[in-house]
């Protein structure tokens, strides 16, 4: 099939950037979306033009590197599918496809479709872990975990840190990403001792990194390739309230 691509080109962080149109011909429906861009890039190189920069690595939907807004939707039209797993048979001959980077204050563009998602690592640094120095672990079976909790924790832990939720959110909020980690660790018995500090510190880091506040717009879950449920945000909010109350209670008694 033949397609028109309109791709965001931006030389560097200082450049203003613009949409540029390209025609691609002979696209096979069996190509992945990124393979279609590979073909375009091979051509651009030989024509002496700069190829389009984009992040990718595993190309099987698990590393979270790929990140494109396709026709206005993060990761494109297919539900529960990352850009790298999207195949061209989803499109039709003659289509025009708009391709843009994640757009969010906390994810500045580095070049073309590549953005800086370092703010996600900052959120994890603030408390997205269980402190268990190597060698200090008790026997694994010392603490059974009810299967239902383990399964629910797993579902939240599936987050690949891609940032589609942020790109989809009108406020540029990373609440779904943050809540996924809070939920994963908060459902495990091992995660209880740090539960309060975790939620307070991660939310503070989230705000500090320049992500917007959550207003329950609900755009994140539909864009999320792993289907992280909105309910995780509810869980984060409850944990946050409980922890804040405790903390202000502590300060009150202390004062």
């Amino acid at each position: 099939m033949n397609l028109t691509l309109r791709i965001w080109r931006q030389q560097g962080p200082q450049d203003k950037g613009r949409m540029v149109s390209y025609q691609v011909t002979d696209v096979s429906p069996d190509m992945s979306f990124l393979e279609m861009l590979d073909v375009l890039n091979e051509r651009l190189i030989l024509e002496g033009e700069e190829p389009v920069a984009f992040d990718h690595d595993c190309r099987e939907g698990i590393c979270g590197a790929c990140s494109m807004v396709i026709n206005g939707t993060p990761h494109g039209p297919q539900k529960m599918t990352t850009t790298c797993q999207l195949h061209m048979r989803t499109f039709s001959d003659g289509d025009t496809i708009d391709i843009e980077p994640w757009r969010a204050k906390a994810f500045p563009v580095i070049k073309d479709l590549v953005v800086n998602r370092g703010a996600f690592d900052k959120i994890i640094q603030a408390g997205g872990y269980i402190s268990a120095p190597t060698g200090s672990a008790p026997e694994a079976h010392a603490t059974p975990v009810p299967k239902a909790d383990a399964d629910a924790a797993f579902e939240a832990a599936e987050c690949i840190g891609c940032g589609a939720c942020v790109a989809a959110c009108p406020n540029g909020s990373a609440m779904l990403f943050t809540a996924a980690k809070i939920t994963h660790l908060g459902l495990m018995p091992q995660g209880q001792p740090e539960r309060d500090s975790r939620v307070l510190d991660m939310v503070a880091a989230h705000d500090e990194a320049g992500f917007g506040g959550c207003t329950n717009a609900g755009e994140c879950t539909p864009a999320c390739p792993k289907g992280i449920p909105l309910a995780t945000i509810g869980r984060l909010n409850r944990d946050f309230l409980a922890a804040s109350r405790k903390r202000s209670g502590e300060t009150a008694t202390a004062g």
Binding site: Y129, I130, A132, T134, G135, S136, A137, P138, E139, A140, T143, P144, V145, P146, K147, A150, D151, A153, F154, A157, H184, L185, M188, Q190, G191
Partner: peptide, 14 residues
């Protein structure tokens, strides 16, 4: 396995 469980790795459980 002990180390990973202590870190909260959500292994499959019975």
């Amino acid at each position: 396995i002990d180390q990973a469980v202590a870190q909260g790795v959500p292994f499959a459980r019975e």
